[in-house]
């Protein structure tokens, strides 16, 4: 026992500390989502004496949250596909093809991602109205795709650069057009990189709030974060329902993050540590 503690004690303490910090607030939200309404206004006890599924029942069966979740799935999926398709073509051009002004392009990407979204929101709103896309999921998905494009292009360019140049040159000599070379040779090899970029774009789009808030106007187009932010409460905030809704909305991204944590960490730290 003593030996075990000496070798694993530090590990256990560190994990406990980090775990309490990171998981504590989320666990409390989980506890809250299972408490009956009358127990929510009582503390102690910390550990609930009885649990109920009534909040999940209300949120999933009697509210517009499922609609918002479906909207978020559509928005995040289409933003991811758009950003990855458009981004990988652009990244390949930057990595391997002789186009002019590469540093200008990267500079523009940097400024675009630095500019406060709040500044573009009113012109963007007017633009979407002109295009007839006001209050549609297309407007939100397209905006998410474009504002995650700099990140996608950045990541994918470095992934393409890591593949040997000779692969592409050999494909060209064998008579492939650059399009064929990219689709049949390069992209299959860059799958891990595509997965990382896709994950980061999806999580960004799922979580994004400001564009989704201003470009949508009704329950039928609202995304999940907007639904959570504008959670309806008549007189008092229904904390139990809100807790259940919060966890349901978090579940998809938390699941992705946990399942692919190694890829995500690789993507987040790519470039920032080596350079």
């Amino acid at each position: 026992m003593m030996m075990w503690f000496r070798t694993h004690g530090l590990t256990a303490c560190v994990l406990l500390l980090v775990g309490l910090f990171c998981l504590g607030p989320v666990l409390w939200q989980a506890v809250t989502s299972l408490k009956p309404d009358q127990d929510l206004v009582r503390l102690p006890p910390l550990i609930p004496e009885r649990v109920t599924g009534v909040h999940y029942d209300r949120v999933l069966l009697q509210s517009s949250l499922p609609r918002s979740l479906a909207n978020s799935v559509v928005v995040a999926a289409s933003a991811t596909v758009t950003a990855i398709v458009v981004g990988s073509f652009c990244a390949f051009a930057l990595a391997r093809l002789p186009i002019a002004g590469k540093s200008v392009i990267l500079g523009v990407a940097l400024v675009t991602s630095m500019f406060p979204p709040i500044a573009v929101i009113s012109p963007l709103y007017l633009l979407m109205r002109e295009l007839g896309l006001r209050d549609t999921l297309v407007a939100v998905g397209l905006t998410h795709a474009v504002y995650s494009l700099p990140l996608a292009v950045w990541l994918l360019t470095s992934f393409f650069q890591q593949l040997p140049k000779e692969l592409y040159q050999a494909a060209r000599i064998d008579g492939c057009t650059p399009l064929q070379a990219l689709l049949t040779i390069i992209l299959p090899l860059a799958r891990p990189g595509l997965a990382v970029a896709a994950l980061l774009v999806f999580i960004y789009s799922w979580n994004e709030f400001m564009f989704a808030l201003t470009l949508t106007a009704s329950d039928t187009t609202r995304t999940a974060p907007v639904a959570v932010a504008l959670f309806p409460g008549l007189y008092e905030i229904p904390w139990g329902d809100l807790a259940a809704a919060s966890l349901v909305v978090t579940l998809p991204v938390a699941g992705l993050a946990l399942a692919f944590q190694r890829h995500i960490i690789a993507g987040l730290t790519a470039g920032s540590v080596k350079g």
């Binding site: 093809l97 002789p98 675009t112 500019f115 500044a119 963007l124 007017l126 795709a145 474009v146």
Partner: peptide, 27 residues
Amino acid sequence: ERAWGYLFAGPAFILVGLIALAPITAA
């Protein structure tokens, strides 16, 4: 090769130009 490059990068340029650069300029 260069023309292919512009063809590949084109869609990204158009999207970023329309949805990001134009609103920034407008702002």
